[in-house]
């Protein structure tokens, strides 16, 4: 009961923004930021035990290397020592880059291109093939800006543009559905759980 009232006050506080920016809205906004940050922090702190303490207890002392590297990131608070952050940043960027390059090449380029090519057997497959090529050519921005471009490129870009507009129209409808779903959830809470009207 009290919990429902607290939730309702928080909800109405944030919603008061549609009328105007008020102290109630500001309090709700800062409450959200504070509680959200605290929640993420607490949950992440609890991960220290299984990810760091447990391997140490199991005798896996190599875990001290990334712990030391992670601690180097605190050098940003000491004047003249910020360069030490370069070590952990280089490691994380290197890992992220290696993983994503491999993932992008295999999942997003090879797999997608091969599926585009192998599905040509049907009318739908031909349409998708034409669409994909035209959309990729649409994003070819390093074409010559002086002189004539090949007519094929101009036509391909026009077709690509049509495909993109249709896709954006589809995305637009999904965005409307998604946003309206969020709003109806809050209205249902206020009228149902809080006021018991529905």
């Amino acid at each position: 009961m009290a919990g429902t009232w607290i939730a309702a006050i928080c909800t109405l506080g944030l919603m008061s923004f549609v009328i105007k920016d008020s102290p109630l809205y500001r309090l709700a906004e800062y409450t959200f930021l504070a509680v959200g940050t605290a929640y993420s922090f607490v949950l992440s702190l609890e991960r220290l035990n299984p990810v760091i303490i447990t391997p140490i207890k199991q005798g896996k002392y190599t875990i001290f290397i990334p712990v030391a590297l992670g601690l180097l990131l605190y050098s940003r608070f000491f004047r003249g020592k910020q360069w030490l952050m370069g070590f952990p940043i280089s490691v994380t960027i290197g890992v992220g880059l290696g993983l994503s390059l491999k993932g992008i090449v295999s999942s997003e380029i090879v797999k997608q291109l091969s599926d585009t090519y192998t599905s040509i057997g049907s009318l739908e497959g031909v349409l998708i093939f034409v669409g994909v090529i035209c959309v990729i050519l649409f994003f070819y921005f390093s074409r010559s800006n002086t002189g004539a471009n090949p007519p094929v490129l101009a036509v391909a870009r026009k077709i690509g543009r049509v495909f993109l507009m249709i896709a954006f129209g589809c995305m637009f409808s999904n965005v409307i559905l998604s946003r309206m779903t969020l709003l109806l959830g809050r209205i249902k809470f206020l009228l149902g759980d809080w006021l018991n009207i529905i």
């Binding site: 999942s107 797999k111 997608q112 599926d115 998708i128 896709a167 589809c170 995305m171 999904n174 965005v175 559905l177 998604s178 946003r179 779903t181």
Partner: peptide, 26 residues
């Protein structure tokens, strides 16, 4: 998948990398 992001993953569904998906509340 959230409706707002569902369109981005259509290529994965058509290529078979994603075997099925739910588009938001619908």
């Amino acid at each position: 998948i959230e409706a707002v992001f569902a369109i981005r993953f259509l290529p994965y569904y058509v290529s078979g990398q994603l075997d099925g998906y739910l588009n938001g509340l619908v």
